[in-house]
């Protein structure tokens, strides 16, 4: 059977080089000597800070989904849409594949990611492993690359510029909520969630 080694060893995911883990100073990034990939970053944010960020992101996500994103005007007629308005419109217009893709990458996966992370961090505050810790960590690993809210924000920007030529364009609250959400996602990009394994005790919640 495989034996787990202590957290003292670190294996580069990109080239398989083995390192002995060393404590990092504030702002320090450990780089692989062979392939130059980032091995580990100093984690400046505490569990509480991460939890606060996840909750903020969740609130923003609700706002971003409840409010319309953009309103277009043409000769006194107005038309606006929320994220789900867009997903439903694509379904009706015979682009069901795109509709499903958008529903998962812009709604279900980001929501699942935030809820899972919130749950895990809530228990990690007291050094405990939340019920369902292991399957949730594995799920987070797999859905990680499939959340695309930040791409959607840039897409909304392009749509505004394209529509601007023919229509009156009004930015709605949804797009501002999305802007804040993008900012939060950027902060989170440098966070290595795998440290939750080491942060929480082995005995389970």
């Amino acid at each position: 059977m495989a034996t787990p080694l202590s957290d003292a060893l670190l294996i580069c995911e990109h080239c398989d080089t083995v390192y002995r883990r060393r404590p990092l100073a504030r702002g320090e990034v450990a780089q692989c000597q062979r392939c130059r990939a980032v091995l580990e970053r100093h984690q400046g944010l505490s569990v509480n800070a991460l939890l606060a960020l996840v909750l903020t992101a969740l609130i923003m996500f609700v706002q971003a989904n409840v409010w319309p994103i953009i309103t277009l005007g043409l000769n006194g007629q107005y038309s606006n849409s929320t994220l789900w308005g867009m997903i439903i419109a694509m379904w009706r217009e015979q682009a069901k594949v795109v509709s499903v893709l958008a529903a998962f990458t812009l709604f279900f996966f980001p929501l699942l990611k935030m809820l899972t992370l919130g749950w895990l961090l809530w228990f990690a505050r007291s050094g405990r492993r939340a019920p369902g810790f292991t399957p949730m960590m594995v799920t987070l690993h797999y859905i990680g690359p499939w959340t695309m809210s930040e791409v959607f924000v840039l897409g909304a920007l392009v749509a505004i510029v394209k529509a601007h030529v023919y229509f009156d364009v009004l930015a709605d609250p949804g797009i501002y909520a999305y802007a804040v959400l993008t900012l939060l996602i950027t902060i989170f990009a440098g966070v290595d969630l795998r440290r939750l394994w080491a942060l929480t005790a082995e005995r389970g919640g």
Partner: peptide, 17 residues
Amino acid sequence: YWSMLDVFVVSLLTALV
């Protein structure tokens, strides 16, 4: 994943226009 940009632009314009 940034290549999804155009897909989202078309989707949004479909819903809006």
